[in-house]
Design a protein around this nucleic acid. Structure first.
Lengths: 325, 325
DNA sequence: CGCCTGCTGGACAACGTTGTCAAAGCGGGT
DNA sequence: ACCCGCTTTGACAACGTTGTCCAGCAGGCG
C-alpha cells in the first residue's frame, strides 16, 4: 500500500480510502490510485486490516471428524450462515480426543476468531473460561459443555432413542438390544437413557447383557452383534445408537434371519437396502444453522443467559424396524 | 502483553521471550512474567504475531461442497497433513459456482494464507496469477486449473471410467448407457471420454441417445434413467459417472429387472445393497494428502516445474456390474 | 586495574492497515 | 479584502507482536 501511494503520488490514507470505497476522494485522484493498484498488482492484506479493526471476520468450528457425514453436514450449515455474515470458517477435527479439541480451540482463540463453535470431545471446558471472559462467544454443538455454563444446541437424543425403541416395542419386540458408543460421550449416554426409558415405560425388563457400549470400530460392534443375536437368549431387535454403529452392525448381521433394526442417524442409501433401514434421523443442517445463528446473535450483542436449544429428531420407518419377532 | 510487562515490571521484549520460550531470561524473571501472565489471563495474539513474522500458519481449501462425502474426505486428508505442519485450515464451499470459488480463493489470499488448495468450479484461474506471482503456492485438486500452468492432483478419471465400462462389456453388455454430470466439469468430460474409449476399444457403437449429461439433481437423472432403460432400444447396463448420479439412478431404477450398473465413486452402504453395487472407487484420502504434501513442498522451497499428479482408481466388483444382459 | 566475554534485559522500529485530526484548497457571501 | 464552511488530502499514532541492536553488569584473564 505504501508502494501504491508512492506510485500514485498520494498519501497512504488516500489509497486506503480508495481501496475501501470511502467517500472524499476526487474522481481523478481515485483513478490514479486505481491505476497504481492495477500496475503493482496490489491486494489488501486483510490480516493487517483486521488487526487494526479488531475483528477477524472468521469463526472456527471444532468437530469430531470432518469426514463423517454428520460432521460435514454440520460444517456446511455453519459455513452457510458464516458466509451470509461475511465470515470465513476455520474447521478442525478433534478425532474425539479431548486434548486435541482443546489444542484446536485454543489455537483458534489465539488467532482471535470472532467466535467459536465446539462439538465437544472432552467433558471439561473450563479452559475456555478466559476466552469467554475476554469476549469470544462460544457455542457448543451436538453435546453440552462440561463444567461451564454456555450456549448449546443439541439433538433430542433421549427422546429420539425412546421413540425408536418404542417403535420396536410397538411391533411386538420384547427383547431389544442396544449397541452404543462409549458411555463417556454425552449423546451416547442420552440415547441409552432414552432406550431404557422406553423399555421401562412399557414395563419391559432390560437384561444388562443386551446393552453393549464401547468404541465404534467394526470389530467391537461385530462382536456385540454376534453376542446379542445368537444363542437361546438372542434379542429379536437391535437399536444401533449412531451411524457408525449402524453401519458396522449391518455388515455383521446375517442377511437371512435378520433381526429388526432401528438406527440413530440417517444414512444415504438407507432406503435402498432390503428391507429399507428404519432410522431416527437427526437434522444436522438445522443443528449447525441454529448454533451458528446463536453465535452471531452473541456477536451482535445478545447478552441473555446461556441457553440450551434442542432440535427434534424424526423417526423414518422403512422396513427394518417393522419386522416382527 | 504490554500489561503483562508492566505488571511484571519488565520490558516488552522480555515477556515476548518468555512466551516463546526463548533463552536469555533468568529463571527468577521468567517466573515473575509467568505469574503476571497467569494473573492477567494473557493469551498471545497470533494474528499480530503472524503479521510480524509474515507467515500465517494457515492454509485454505476451496472445495465443491463440504457436505459431500468426497469433499469431506479430501478435507480430512488435507487437514491431517496441515496439522502435522502446524497449520490450521480454512475451508469453503464453492457450490460449483465459479464466481463463488473466485471470491473464496481471493478472500483466503487476502488473509494471506500460506497456501491454497482449490477444487475448481470455474475453468479460468488466471485471476490467481498475481497471488501465485506474489508467492502464495496454489495446488489444484480433483480437476486441473484453467488458463494457467499449476500443480494439480487428479484421479485417473478416464482410465477408471474406461475400466468400469470394459467390465460391463466383459460381462456381455453391448448397449451401455452413460449418465454423467455437466460436460463443463472436467472430471465429467474425462469420464465420458473413458466410457467412449472403452466402447470404441471393443468395437461397439455408441448411440448418442445413450449418453446423458447434465445437472445431477434427482429429477433429471431420474428422467435419464427412465428414458435409457425403457422401450425397445433400452440399454442393458448403465455407467453412472459420479456418486450423486449413482445415488439418484438407484432411486429411480425398478427393483425387479434392474440393468447392470457400475458407478464412479464408492458409497458407504454400497456393499449391503442387493445386489452389491459395483463401483470404480476413487481414493479421496490419497488425493487430499498428495495435494497437501505438494503444497507444503512448495512452501518448503520446491521450485520445480508445476506437475500434474494422477491417483489411480480401483474397480470393486460387488454384483451390480456382473449382471448379464 | 583494564579489557574482553557472556549473559540478561530493554528501547525502538517494523509488519500493513485504519482512525483521528489538522491543514490545505476552494467557492461564495458579506 | 475577509471570513466562513465545506471538501479533499495527508501526517501520524495505533493495533500486538517480533527482530535488531545496544546497554548494563558480572566474572575471568592478562
Amino acid at each position: 500500500m505504501k508502494d501504491v501511494a508512492a506510485a500514485a503520488g498520494v498519501g497512504l490514507k488516500t489509497v486506503s480510502r480508495v481501496v475501501n470505497g470511502e467517500s472524499g476522494v476526487t474522481d481523478g485522484t481515485a483513478e490514479r490510485v486505481r491505476e497504481a493498484i492495477e500496475a503493482l498488482g496490489f491486494r489488501r492484506n486483510d490480516s493487517a486490516r483486521l488487526l487494526r479493526t479488531g475483528r477477524t471476520a472468521s469463526v472456527a468450528l471444532v468437530l469430531e471428524d470432518i469426514s463423517d457425514p454428520f460432521s460435514s453436514a454440520l460444517s456446511r450449515a455453519v459455513e452457510q450462515v458464516a458466509a451470509a455474515e461475511g465470515c470465513l470458517l476455520f474447521t478442525g477435527s478433534s478425532g474425539e480426543q479431548a486434548d486435541r479439541e482443546r489444542e484446536l480451540a485454543l489455537a483458534f482463540c489465539a488467532r482471535r476468531v470472532d467466535g467459536l463453535i465446539v462439538v465437544p470431545a472432552g467433558d471439561d471446558h473450563r479452559y475456555l473460561l478466559p476466552e469467554i471472559a475476554s469476549g469470544t462467544p462460544v457455542v457448543f454443538l451436538d453435546r453440552p459443555a462440561g463444567g461451564i455454563d454456555a450456549d448449546a444446541v443439541l439433538s433430542d437424543n433421549a427422546g429420539g432413542a425412546r421413540r425408536g425403541t418404542e417403535h420396536l416395542i410397538a411391533h411386538g419386540h420384547r427383547r431389544i438390544g442396544f449397541i452404543g458408543d462409549l458411555r463417556a460421550i454425552h449423546t451416547a449416554a442420552e440415547r441409552e437413557r432414552g432406550y431404557r426409558a422406553a423399555m421401562a415405560g412399557a414395563g419391559l425388563p432390560v437384561d444388562d447383557r443386551w446393552v453393549d457400549c464401547g468404541p465404534t470400530d467394526r470389530a467391537r460392534v461385530g462382536e456385540a452383534v454376534r453376542r446379542l443375536t445368537t444363542g437361546p437368549d438372542a434379542v429379536t431387535a437391535l437399536f444401533t445408537a449412531n451411524n457408525r454403529v449402524t453401519l458396522a452392525a449391518l455388515h455383521h448381521l446375517p442377511a437371512e434371519r435378520r433381526p429388526a433394526v432401528v438406527g440413530f442417524d440417517d444414512l444415504e442409501l438407507a432406503d435402498l437396502l432390503t428391507p429399507g433401514l428404519t432410522v431416527v434421523a437427526q437434522d444436522p443442517a438445522a443443528l449447525g444453522a441454529l448454533a451458528a445463528r446463536r453465535l452471531f446473535a452473541r456477536l451482535a450483542g445478545d447478552v441473555g443467559a446461556p441457553a440450551c436449544l434442542e432440535v427434534p429428531t424424526t423417526l423414518i420407518p422403512r422396513g427394518s424396524g417393522e419386522i416382527r419377532p
